[in-house]
Design a protein around this nucleic acid. Structure first.
Lengths: 155, 155
DNA sequence: TATTGTTATACTCTATAACTATA
DNA sequence: TATAGTTATAGAGTATAACAATA
């Protein structure tokens, strides 16, 4: 393109001054979170796993026999909403619930072979995405960020 | 409480191993975002302003006569959904729409006196929250974070 | 009485298709 | 033909109340 030429379709959203919003760390974190959720959904499209579903599979894998209340507490999902997700994953034969013999109110949750296999695949895709996210920060920045984002939850 | 005393109700969710999730920067950002949104909602309860509504008021104030498409592009809200929010704010007499004379498809949006006044109040509350968030990081960390969260949006 | 898990339900958020009026 | 704004609607996500079974 010649130097004096004006590109055919310039999306000149340059006009809108967003500086007052972008000064907010809170705003930036929210926008980044939204973007990451979209990236996650796109990368997981073939495996048909939502973020919360992936989190649940990871937690079950790291905590065999975990129950619904523990899952809900960890992920901040209310019991009624969690039951919906667990039912969905159960119907897909990715996990199974077994009633406890010590306390028959409790259901212990474990991954099925299918669930384990899917989690393995998913973890690879997530690791790739996570790598891209991490590459935006230096190792030092990552540590500070992890600590800060944890401390934020205490506010 | 005596040293050998066991507190009455220890929520010992210590059992659940969340380390595999918490290693993900993406997970941390999402959890922080969720938490900030809840804090925001709580602080804005008296003013009855949601995050997206506050963002809109700020953008209008910084860009007098902005139109719906520009707002939607900036905030990543689709036209149908944006119209709902704008209608809501319009009914509360916080903003007003004026049809452009140059291009009668366009509506220029401006704050009313009420909208301006409410924004001023809201900005104070938001600044307080933002201060608390910023205090979690050093000035250097904040800069790195701001830059990183911006770069993330390019992924 | 309290807890685990469940059902039903409502409310909010987000996404999509189709339309109008203007250009 | 394309754009700004709108309507209607469906789907996903989230929140609340009430319940059964068990402790």
């Amino acid at each position: 393109m010649a130097a004096d030429e004006i590109p055919a379709s310039t999306e000149q959203e340059v006009l809108v001054d967003q500086s007052r919003l972008q000064r907010y760390l809170g705003y930036r974190i929210n926008r980044a979170s939204l973007h990451i959720r979209k990236l996650f959904a796109r990368r997981m499209a073939t495996l048909q796993l939502k973020a919360v579903e992936y989190s649940i599979l990871v937690l079950i894998d790291a905590n065999r026999g975990i129950n619904l209340r523990q899952l809900g507490d960890a992920l901040d999902v209310s019991p009624p909403n969690l039951v919906q997700v667990i039912d969905r994953l159960s119907k897909r034969k990715l996990l199974k619930r077994v009633r406890s013999r010590q306390d028959r109110r409790i259901q212990h949750i474990n991954l099925t072979a299918d669930g384990s296999a899917l989690l393995k695949q998913a973890a690879k895709a997530v690791a790739k995405l996570e790598d891209e996210i991490e590459q935006v920060f230096t190792a030092t920045e990552q540590k500070a960020l992890i600590r800060g984002l944890r401390d934020l939850l205490e506010l």
